[in-house]
Design a binder for these strands. Sequence first.
RNA 1: GCCCGCGUGGUGGAAUGGUAGACACAGGGGACUUAAAAUCCCUAGGCCGAAAGGCCGUGCGAGUUCGACUCUCGCCGCGGGCACCA
Length: 854
Amino acid sequence: MSRYEPSLIEPKWQGAWNEAETFKAVRSEDKPKYYVLEMFPYPSGRIHIGHVRNYTMGDVIARYKKAVGHNVLHPMGFDAFGMPAENAAMASGGHPKTWTYDNIDTMVSQMKPLGFGLDWSRMFATCDPEYYGQQQALFLDFLEAGLVYRRNAVVNWDPVDMTVLANEQVIDGKGWRSGAEVERRELTQWFFKISDFAEELLDAIDGLDDWPAKVKLMQANWIGRSRGLQFAFSTVEAPEGFDRIEVYTTRPDTLMGASFVGVSPDHPLARQLERHSPEVAAFCAEARKGGTTEEALEKAEKLGFDTGIKVRHPFDTSWELPVYIANFILMEYGTGAIFGCPAHDQRDLDFARKYDLPVASTFVPLAGDHVLPEDGGEAYVPPKTETVRFVRGLQGEVEQTGEEAIDSTVDFCEANGVGQGVTKFRLRDWGLSRQRYWGCPIPVVHCDTCGVVPEKKENLPVVLPDDVGFDIPGNPLDRHPTWRDTPCPKCGATARRETDTMDTFVDSSWYYARFTAPRAETPTDMAEAAYWMNVDQYIGGIEHAILHLLYSRFFARAMQITGHLPASAIEPFDALFTQGMVTHAIFETKDANGRPVYHFPEEVELVDGGARLKDGTAVEVTSSAKMSKSKKNVVDPADIIARYGADTARWFVLSDSPPERDVEWTASGAEAAYRHLGRVYRIAAEVAGAEDTPGKGDEDLLRAMHKCIFDVTQGVESFGFNAAIAKLYAFTNTLQKSGAGTAAKREAARTLAQLMSPMTPHLAEEIWQMLDGVGLVAEADWPQADEAMLVEDSVTLPIQINGKRKSEITVAKDLPKDEVEKVVLADPAVQKALDGGSPKKLIVVPGRIVNVVV
RNA sequence: GCCCGCGUGGUGGAAUGGUAGACACAGGGGACUUAAAAUCCCUAGGCCGAAAGGCCGUGCGAGUUCGACUCUCGCCGCGGGCACCA
């Protein structure tokens, strides 16, 4: 009998699928379509097990949907622009383009042996001029439709390297290479008007029935609709033109507890004062230090500068509040000015205590031993839905919720001409400008006479020049005269190209649409898009829950407005699944200076409970973490395939852990998966070679088979791949131990192969062929569970006494409740517990459980 | 700091509010073998007990319920996101 040899059977069946063009997606009206998409990878170098897991899940869905009669589109591409390519070029002197395309070649050559049912003919990379040229066309259409504009926005500025830094390049407020303290600096940048869609993007979340609730909640919070009050303080002794300061607040009910007004260092008032006062200028310069992230702002020490200017409280003009310039207020949020209410905001309270400003509670809890913030307690910040007692409200002493108080304050302010109730969104416009080379050039030209002029569509793509160097920091496009200088598309005079490139989120915001017609001469082909869109099942990491998915939802709307997608596709992803990461233990020793040294798993030997290097050095095994090259806790799929084959890798990444949770890669787990597949192969080969003989238990085996069909189908449909695999293990055990006749065993083994085929497609083909299956199992119809074979006629009911399981009874499935009660009361364990008495309560849940309360 | 998750044996994990630990890994015992590998069988949450059996047990603390891993509230720990990482 032959052995299970993946290295022989896997290439063979991959060849057969290619030959038959099994996975080529062709538009056809005779079957329902199904579009399954995994978030495409960044070409970082080599694929890792996390990729294998992600694409295997998609492949299971794709192969299963094909088997149940769909016309499936399952494409693959690369998200190929971005910083790592430039960093590699800086580190080793190569070119981002070479680095990127080499990586893509490597990754494709690693992915193909995994046997994914992908339509490779549709592959593209976002750095292909054919792709980004169409993206430039989209940009021009968006510009024309008024969906794009320019304005100033802050960036992280490295004053030593004279360059813009990404947030991840700012470490503890310092530039990653120069070590210089980073400053926030304003630049004129391009923006997509996503905020125009805030309400629509928020409301449409309700319709995303097959998205995880947590993702919908995160998006809703991110968009952040709030009802608040916008009003102006009138100033005292302010410079000319600053007789009012506009503020927005979501807590107008705390207005009577106001204690100061704060403005951003970039507020026009601060800018004005800065010009005349060196102290203000020094404070603002200091306040601008540090990164731009919300996290950095929130965690930085809160500092203020008293301008000496006062404002009048809107409800009591004799009440004056000081105006501070404060480092934690960003000009880009709201109006760039706030009022501080220390009693009901911890940040304001810290600020007030630091600068000795008054603290006055406007409301207190209904009950409990509350220490007022004015008496040294914490700021009191209850949820807006909680009822509190107002002590300094506009209506005097009332008990109401924050919401009620906010509404009545807004009404009062509107009636008295103090301000206006407005609905605002937290969502800000999407800044797409990047001062970097390796991205899609923004196709506009700056002309001294005509201003900002869009490039003509016939001049697209605006291709990145190849002759650039990365030895000096900054954007090489800025210092490339022959690329930068170009005739103005309008007047023909010499003008300058825009040297900013696009955020890589732009690239990934429409690739799903491009896959429907990847070679079209326009961004999309409407007939293809109308047929294939939407993505029926989108699969990717939870880390993309907000930005990527929100930007894609915006793009689908913008593409619909500009005629590139049908209206039916404005929500591009019908169903979303967020999978967990693959983690691995980290192996660590220390060098002579006590610094950690990391080791690849294959360098480490595991010995009873401990670990050591080949030379005997003890290795510390630290808890499992996301695989990363720097920690060397990576497993290369190529090694796994070489050792065990693709099917083992696929089977293992799906088993054990639920797909949405992280999975820990362990060598022993992979070994076990391999042994199991070998066992399935042996059982099938034995059955295939057996003489036709009758046996005992045919019906039991076939019942188990139908139960398995039912369970696996349900598992695959509901992303319960680990549960489906557990059922396949159990059924394999049943089959192995079965004494059934050869015919029944053949049927069982063939069905087993089919049920395994989405996960281990090569092995499944091999067994299918051994057992005389017709054609390719990849093209066969999915087995149907026979309902009649699933019905059990008797059922085992556990008996609980006071909620603890003490006994069980087996009764006919449809035995009436009162009959069940009789059987229960006769049970010895129940008799013993009752001790002659009668039960307080007897709960019978039909087909489930019995609980006796004594 | 803010938003969102997660937490179950030695390990990965299973469980429409209804028998906690399915299935698997590692472990222990056994069969086959001159031996090993491979394969197969048995065992297996903790504590007490010879056994029958009993008690405890899903991060911690409360609550709702006949019944809570599951729902509610509070805490602890870990992870994801925070708008220029992708």
